[in-house]
Write a protein that binds this DNA or RNA. Structure first.
Lengths: 248, 248
DNA sequence: GAGTGGTCTAGACCACATC
DNA sequence: ATGTGGTCTAGACCACTCG
């Protein structure tokens, strides 16, 4: 017997090999053994390392590519995908900047405080009722015109020091902050769209009349392990809203 | 040399085999060689017939399963999927019938006529400007309550005899009619969602006040070959609207 | 040129559904 | 019991990217 170089696969050993390998790779990504942007070992290398056939390693990688975790580039390698969220919120709003460019709206933080989690929030974030959460209110503007109001909730115990940061330090994008300062990578999100009408406060905020239609977007952002990271509710002017779907 | 039983594959011969086989299978489905509900030959059989390795046939089938054209059932076979449109329009509206059951709303045809295609319609249906189209107005009701108004446009030359049918004969679902009477199978659809406010007519129709928010859903229904079959614009009460998305 | 993923072959055995 | 898809092996050669 020669010494074994193979590594044990995670998961129930009644599961198919390629699924167990996929699980193993996933937890390596969650645990940041491989970080977004990193190149994975080649498929052949993975196969050797985990003692499976190349085709099986390939199948495992394919699973994660489908899930959007990995990114294959022919001739170059397979990479851990950086969660870009190109596909996000602002996909819904066609801001004047017509030429299809992805513009990041200006961001103005209105309020930031630690409160006891409202029940809807603790449920969404899967934390104990009445735990402390950080609550942030932001106004989003395009070319100085207010287009959306956001309320954001975070588990205070994981994002404690966010309260100490300056508004300027935070900037217009929160997810990179979660990543760099709190080691929380948003991998996926679930959104729910509804229509509501503007109350006094949002009418004033978004330069509308009371009763004008608003698009309400609830979003739960989760990590690679599907654990909740952030919950937010955004309200935008419905007249700027457009959304496309393909049905199969 | 023995006689060849193999069948020629469609498509550019510089393309991968599995893609050409997928194309071949797709056109057989479009041409109704295999109809929705039919079982395809087994993967091994396909491989023999088209003279490719089993794995390659499998890859081709996988493509079409991903596209939603085929449906694999372990131990049973691979079937041509019936376009059910579970995933459709009424997914957006949560009708009272809370228990998640898929209810088909009642349907009342308000108007049916042949007109010259408005330019937006001829463009959507990819037909000549000013061609004749059938225009249908319908009201959709749940438990007697109006929830949505629909305007539907069809190429008159392909749906001519629809004008001779009785309202009752048409019933609440149009796509089965397109299938059975006109050999037009709706395979996919693209929808676009926007928010508008109710004009007098829709306020009356949907029991709203003028200016109340409406969800406007534009839908282009296409066949397996991606050619337009029907275009419709639906307007529904925004307060019944809810939509969920996963972002990766 | 070396290394990567992309395609393809030609089998094997297993799990499952149906008769 | 038979036939189906599901998994897996162990290769081959090609197309692409990069240094």
């Amino acid at each position: 017997m020669t010494a074994k170089k193979e590594i044990e696969l995670a998961g129930d050993n009644r599961l198919p090999l390629y699924q167990r390998l996929a699980e193993t790779l996933t937890s390596d990504i969650v645990d940041r053994v491989w970080r977004p942007g990193d190149r994975l070992p080649s498929e052949a290398e993975l196969a050797k390392r985990y003692n499976v056939a190349p085709g099986t390693a390939r199948q495992a990688v394919s699973l994660l590519v489908e899930d959007g975790l990995l990114d294959r580039r022919q001739g170059t390698g397979t990479f851990v995908r950086k969660p870009t969220f190109d596909t996000s919120l602002f996909r819904f709003f066609r801001f004047q900047s017509s030429d299809g460019e992805r513009l990041i709206p200006e961001s103005r933080i209105l309020r930031r405080e630690v409160i006891k989690a409202p029940s809807a929030v603790s449920r969404a974030l899967a934390i104990e009722p009445d735990s402390l959460v950080i609550s942030i209110s932001r106004l989003r503007l395009m070319d100085g015109v207010p287009v959306m109001g956001e309320e954001i909730w975070l588990d205070e115990s994981r994002f404690h020091s966010l309260m100490d940061m300056e508004d300027a330090e935070i900037g217009p994008l929160l997810y990179p902050i979660y990543d760099t300062h709190f080691d929380q990578v948003v991998a996926r999100a679930k959104e729910s769209l509804t229509v509501d009408t503007a109350d006094d406060m949002h009418a004033r905020l978004l330069d509308l009349n009371k009763g004008d239609p608003l698009i309400v977007i609830d979003r739960l952002a989760v990590g690679f392990d599907n654990k909740p990271i952030e919950w937010r509710r955004s309200r935008g002017r419905a007249d700027r809203f457009q959304y496309h779907i393909e049905i199969n």
